[in-house]
Write a protein that binds this DNA or RNA. Structure first.
Lengths: 338, 338
DNA sequence: TTGAAAGCGCTAACAA
DNA sequence: TTGTTAGCGCTTTCAA
């Protein structure tokens, strides 16, 4: 094994406690003693064994983040922000992905890596209420995203309905009337996209436009290919929208690809709005108008929630936080030269 | 604290060892005993404390992966593959990013989270040879990517020179003569892109074409904006290539955006080839021809390297593995209808 | 200000 | 087949 506290103590001719004091910057250590111990530490190349420390303290300083898919830039960017936010509090992040599968989501929230993670931030897709109620693990759990649960856990999500409405409002403002919604979930009993779909419906109603269900295109997944396929299906059915509001940027990008293949111009023939504001949306041949959730805020709030549950003795009520969002208008609705 | 082995033992009226045996599926336990212990476990809701197990065993089953930037889809996709590869061996991945900063890279490879990570997979950018030689941490380290070091560590990278040459060869084969290289590093003494740049040079020479240094455009970073800026700079200087080979897909995508803004058609006026084969490259208005490294193989080999160093007693020679790569030809060189 | 000793929860050697 | 016991390396009372 490696060098332990005891080895250092022996070398310096002091007790283990003294070495521990030095390592932990305990204030009441004479400079001379500190120097002597430090020398022994350096000579031996001592590194504290954090596993032992964790066992003793009952805390590891590691929090887990579970997202559906790291290949989705939204989650990659979010993960990046969470890692940074956690680092600012001296926490480390253990990252996992669930592929949006209920099984995996349950596994993760049931406390994988027992006692090695202090808390969990989970962005669920298929998880059900009952799965959450069955949770026995006692470490803090923070939920992220559009799904709503009535379980006593902190939940962080932007106002999806309002955000979706702002997107649709923008499309109406530029004169669009037949606005398709891409990305309703095809075969899921629950509807993960329900809030954005509701926003679409509400804003159309508010504008006195019908919400024609033939304009709602289901998808199986949340990727570019799913958006492309949904768009193609819609067009193949003879539906001809003058705008598309997609569940997320990836689907919007897939849809734009298909529109291009079919000779339809964006935005002249069909305007497109996405959701997430991933960096990719700022650099395509046609940049994408999109709803931009404040990812930094989401990450920060999520980490803060976990840490405050860990730190504050008071078991407060579950919190419901709403980070901000913005509509970022780009070429896919306004065209290149505006 | 939570429920411990001792509590379960007490409840079941047996010794801790017996409970431990049951928890660890030790074979020589009578079914009756197993049932009795299992019942106590269930009643108490016992979950083993992995931290304690880790301390005792000297292993945690956690390996760290440090990449420059999770916002770069190549690394996000790679991380995803590593997490899966690790999971297949019952390892968990702790993900960190270095922002390509030498300081952070040094910190990471100097053994952050001492004794809580069993090994490290690092994709360095600025790290220097001497940093590696100064490494005192004894846990296995596996290096990823283009940078070359003469330090005794496993290194996994595709044949960057050959891959770059295949890209340039393709451009020459479709009749291009003035092929720019995007993404040489501007102010770095070391040249992280040196192998791909060398491939560019070698293939041009082999074809009897001059390698005009005015066709080499430096960038500061590795993102879309950097590619866009480099392309713009090139065009502003009056340089007019008929093809661009970019260090990576992101830069290629940024370059294509600028070409479009300037009214240059891809591929008719300027053909573009990238490197990485990120998913984004398959869905743009103009899909991107690119070098596709075998990410699955890279991930698999990296995880295998770490684990075999952990497992096999024999301290073998440092390995140099070369996963495969492919040139994926798409619209940015052949056009839409081919 | 420093030392001695107990114990975090687990595994593994040894005993029974 | 099951029980006893000694640590893994650290922090932390309590005493000196």
């Amino acid at each position: 094994m490696g060098v332990s506290l005891k080895d250092v103590a022996q070398r310096a001719g002091v007790s283990v406690k003294t070495v521990s004091n030095v390592v932990n910057d305990y204030p009441h250590v004479t400079p001379a003693m500190r120097a002597r111990v430090q020398q022994a530490i350096d000579e031996l190349g001592y590194r504290p064994n954090l596993t032992a420390r964790h066992l003793r303290k009952g805390r590891t300083g590691i929090i887990a983040l579970a997202v559906p898919e790291l290949g989705n830039p939204y989650f990659a960017e979010l993960a990046s922000a969470v890692i940074d936010a956690a680092a600012r509090h001296h926490y480390t992040v253990l990252l996992d992905h669930t592929a949006g599968m209920r099984e995996k989501e349950m596994l993760v929230c049931q406390g994988f890596q027992t006692h090695v993670i202090d808390g969990l931030i989970l962005s669920p897709i298929e998880l059900e209420n009952q799965d959450l109620h069955g949770r026995t693990d006692t470490s803090p759990l923070v939920l992220l995203g559009e799904r709503e649960y009535d379980a006593p856990y902190d939940h962080i999500a932007i106002d999806n309905v309002a955000a979706a409405r702002s997107a649709v409002r923008h499309l109406i403002a530029i004169g669009r009337q037949r606005i398709a919604f891409l990305g309703a979930r095809a075969e899921s009993a629950r509807q993960p996209a329900h809030l954005r779909l509701r926003g679409w419906r509400e804003e159309l109603s508010a504008a006195g436009l019908p919400h024609d269900d033939s304009l709602v295109a289901p998808t199986d997944g949340y990727g570019r290919a799913d958006g492309a396929q949904a768009m193609a299906t819609l067009l193949d059915r003879g539906v001809r929208p003058d705008a598309v509001f997609a569940y997320n940027d990836l689907q919007a990008i897939g849809a734009m690809r298909v529109l291009g293949e079919r000779g339809l111009r964006v935005p002249q023939d069909v305007a497109v709005v996405g959701f997430d504001d991933i960096e990719e949306s700022r650099f395509g041949a046609i940049t994408l108008t999109t709803v931009a959730p404040d990812k930094q805020a989401i990450a920060r709030q999520a980490v803060n929630c976990v840490i405050s549950r860990l730190t504050d003795s008071a078991e407060a009520e579950p919190r419901r936080l709403r980070p901000g969002h913005d509509l970022v208008v780009r070429e896919s609705t306004l065209g290149r030269h505006q």
